[in-house]
Design a protein around this nucleic acid. Structure first.
Length: 426
RNA sequence: GGAGAGGUGGCCGAGUGGCCGAAGGCGCUCCCCUGCUAAGGGAGUAUACCCUAAACCGGUAUCGGGGGUUCGAAUCCCCCCCUCUCCGCCA
């Protein structure tokens, strides 16, 4: 959520900034609602004040043994007005709230203005895509030939966009999770956390998935209205919802492995082959809570932490900064890290690292007590995948494939694989 | 699933209808005292919103969440959520 004060006082400026994202702010409507709100709120609070004083009066008179009958009569009418005014206020506040909460974050000044992913700007590349002296296969064929990756049986068990892995491939998948968590905890200073995979509406509102993006989520058929998490970002970031932490504990850095569940509504026909886009996938997430003045630098280091994983795995990648039109709803600035996929002959997203500034924190009321002012201030939140495990696995399969269809295991993973060096068909 | 006890400020904890945004303690901030440290004395210290150019002042709301009774609710009633104890069941 954006700062309501800023929206009120600099409405035109806000509209201009959001126009860079291709978002049109309904300036007329916002100022109309705001004007109405102001009127109703003042009216309502005046009535409240009046009835409060009268109630106190009655108490005082009664204590002295006086006659309160005339006062009671007077108060009755006032109460009726008040009930109406309170209802009006609640309605207009809700309207204002829903207007405000559906406005996306301001992009950072340095974010390139653009329409879609074609306007994203490459920042750097690492590694050189390997040249193969044999006909390459994609991960689907590699996995099938190894008899260790099966989409058909997953389709039977559940449906499309699910996978079954077996044997060494399943172990490699697990090894990746351990490797990523170990790297982030022991080399990058993150605290590992384990969190619920189902969350309530408040949490999803806090990170910005609700109310706008409900169709991307799996909702449980249960009166409690829980949702399966689409990313660990939701439970982990909400660790600090409604909290005020001491400035001394900052920055807080959490890493967390969870499955992620996405309905992928609206992506029919996209990436239908293979593991790129699944309803269920594993991810190791990085989340940081920092002071506002530190968030810009924190995004750089967080991104480098994710890149480290690819470097250690020897997977070529490039990092792009998303343009204004391609950024997520809550983000002020996002770097996507894209790994090289030989079968597609291009780079594909494997991590997305974002600085949300105070946008999520305002929705969540996640604050810290500033040492300077002694007052609670909004935190800045950041997160990034470090990395998406399924996509990392398939990148390894494709980049490390050998002429006979076997897959070499990157050296850093071998300790997690009982020192196995190559995955072959059993 | 059954029975019971609870949820109050950064933390602990008192408060069963008006004098309560809330005693007391801890923590924190400032001041005094002290050669240093420790101890001691004093003052201050919730959050959000409205009002304001802003600050002060002022106003309103908030004692797990929602609804109700009442002129008036932290306090009474109803529903829900959460925590704890005991029993049952269970990975």
């Amino acid at each position: 959520m954006l700062d309501p004060k800023f929206i009120r006082n600099h409405l035109e400026e806000a509209a201009a900034i959001l126009a860079k994202r291709g978002v049109t702010l309904d300036v007329e409507k916002i100022s109309a609602v705001e004007e109405r709100r102001k009127k109703i709120q003042t009216h309502c609070e005046n009535l409240q004040q009046e009835s409060k004083t009268r109630a106190k009066n009655i108490g005082a008179i009664k204590a002295k043994g006086g006659d309160i009958e005339p006062l009671l009569k007077e108060v009755g009418d006032l109460k009726q007005q008040l009930t109406q005014a309170e209802a009006d206020l609640a309605a207009v506040q809700q309207e204002w709230e829903s207007l405000l909460s559906s406005i996306p974050n301001f992009p950072a000044d340095e974010v390139p203005v653009g329409k879609d992913e074609n306007d994203n700007v490459e920042i750097r590349r690492w590694g050189t895509p390997r040249t193969f002296d044999f006909p390459i296969k994609d991960h689907v064929d590699l996995g099938a030939d190894l008899a260790q990756l099966d989409f058909e049986v997953a389709g039977k068990i559940t449906g499309s966009r699910f996978a079954v892995m077996k044997s060494s491939l399943a172990r490699l998948h697990r090894a990746l999770i351990q490797f990523m968590l170990d790297t982030h905890t022991s080399e990058h200073g993150y605290q590992e956390v384990y969190v619920p995979y189902m969350v309530n509406k408040d949490s999803l509102f806090g990170t910005g998935q609700l109310p706008k993006f409900e169709e991307d989520l799996f909702k449980l058929q249960d009166e409690r209205e829980f949702y399966l998490i689409p990313t660990a970002e939701v439970p982990v970031t909400n660790l600090l919802r409604d909290e005020i932490v001491d400035e001394k504990v900052l920055p807080l850095k959490f890493t967390c492995h969870t499955p992620c569940f996405r309905s992928e509504a609206g992506s029919y026909g996209r990436d239908t082959r293979g593991m790129i886009r699944q309803h269920q996938f594993e991810k190791v997430e990085l989340v940081q809570f920092v002071r506002p003045e530190d968030s810009e630098q924190a995004l750089e280091t967080l991104t480098s932490h994710a890149e480290t994983i690819l470097q250690k795995l020897g997977l070529p990648y490039r990092t792009v900064v998303l343009c204004t039109g391609d950024m997520g709803f809550s983000s002020a600035k996002t770097y996507d890290i894209e790994v090289w996929l030989p079968s597609q002959n291009k780079y594909r997203e494997i991590s997305s690292c974002s600085n949300f500034r105070d946008f999520q924190a305002r929705r969540m009321k996640a604050r810290y007590r500033s040492a300077a002012t002694g007052k609670p201030e909004l935190l800045h939140t950041l997160n990034g995948s470090g990395l998406a495990v399924g996509r990392t696995l398939l990148a390894i399969m494709e980049n490390y494939q050998q002429a006979d269809g076997s897959i070499e295991i990157p050296a850093v993973l071998r300790p997690y694989m009982g020192n196995l060096e190559v995955i072959r068909r059993a």
